[in-house]
Simulated assay, not measured.
Amino acid sequence: MASLKKYRVDSKFKLAQVSPGDTPFLEGNEAAQVAEIDALAAELDEMQDLLHAEGRRKLLLVLQGMDTSGKDGTVRWVFSRTSPLGVRVTAFKAPSDDERAHDYLWRCHAVVPRTGEIAVWNRSHYEDVLVPVVEGWIDKAEAKRRYAQINDFERLLVETGTVVVKCMLHIDKDEQRERLQARIDTPGKQWKFSMGDLEVRTKWNAYQEAYDKALRATSTDHAPWYAIPANHKRHRNLMIAQLLMKTLRQMKLKAPPADPALKGMIIK
């Protein structure tokens, strides 16, 4: 069994030390890998039922990554067997006028998971320490303040019953090129392509540096980051599914005790 330890971000972490093409969690042939993902997805559904039944805690999965890194695909595969009533997905786009009129964490706090729920954020509050840094909209001092504010925000969530799992889906520039080209070449996928994707791509190195700084500054004991090698889609899905199952098992979820009033009851 591969270890997640190597991919947990620490204070000295750099994305360059993790190969996006790594596949340590893939074993067996393609059919076996798909079967394993499906089995983990089914078990995840069972664990979500327990999370809901326990009614005390909740889980937040944060997915970040460059364009085409597979955030949508991760949600589609990892939660393929989970009841939609137990998982809520929020995709963060460019902030609206109303969102910009508030502090940058306002829109995130509004969609934190409810008790017994798994919330998945496709992009997140980390956009506010990536895009503004690369574009030069905030200086180093402001970025540092935001790192501290994010750590405090996540500590608040953890101290009020939320388990936070953060995954950076790590692909390389060549893989992104192939995926962008596939969108252009496939009529049914062209809607996913934006000319703005090409503008962001010209700033690839700046974004890698911004990710390095943000990941190091905000990977904490209460809300650690994991760098997920994501060039291989099945590997990405399998690694995140295993990380989620490990997290849920460590929560030692238990259904509430049986109701004595129901003992021996027979429905006629």
Score class of each variant (00 low, 15 high):
K203C: 04
L156P: 06
R88H: 15
W191I: 12
V89N: 05
S3Y: 07
I267C: 07
K6S: 14
Y211C: 00
T68S: 09
L169S: 01
V129K: 00
W225V: 07
D212L: 04
V78F: 05
K173Y: 12
V134D: 00
W106T: 04
D10M: 08
S194C: 11
V129Y: 02
A230D: 04
G55E: 06
P24H: 00
Y126F: 03
L253W: 01
S194D: 13
A32Q: 15
D221R: 14
A32L: 13
L157F: 02
R123T: 05
T68P: 05
V112H: 03
A227I: 08
P132E: 03
D72L: 07
A53K: 10
L4S: 12
T82D: 12
P229I: 06
L198S: 05
V34F: 11
D139Q: 01
L244N: 09
A182R: 11
S19P: 07
A255N: 01
E27T: 13
Q176T: 02
R216Y: 05
G86I: 03
V34D: 15
F25T: 02
Q149E: 15
M265L: 14
S11P: 12
Q190K: 13
T220Y: 04
R8L: 13
A148Y: 05
A214P: 00
Y147R: 00
S11K: 15
M1C: 14
K14V: 10
D139W: 07
R100C: 08
A31L: 12
K140V: 12
A258P: 04
A39Y: 04
A32I: 13
A2G: 07
A16R: 11
L44G: 00
N122D: 14
L157H: 04
T162M: 09
H102L: 12
E142Q: 11
S194W: 12
F25A: 01
S69G: 04
K192Y: 10
P113Y: 06
T23C: 07
L59D: 11
S3C: 03
Q149I: 14
E178A: 15
S3L: 09
R249E: 15
G136Y: 06
Y126V: 02
G55Y: 08
I171T: 06
W77S: 13
I138S: 09
R155A: 11
H222E: 08
S3R: 14
A110I: 05
D128G: 05
K14C: 11
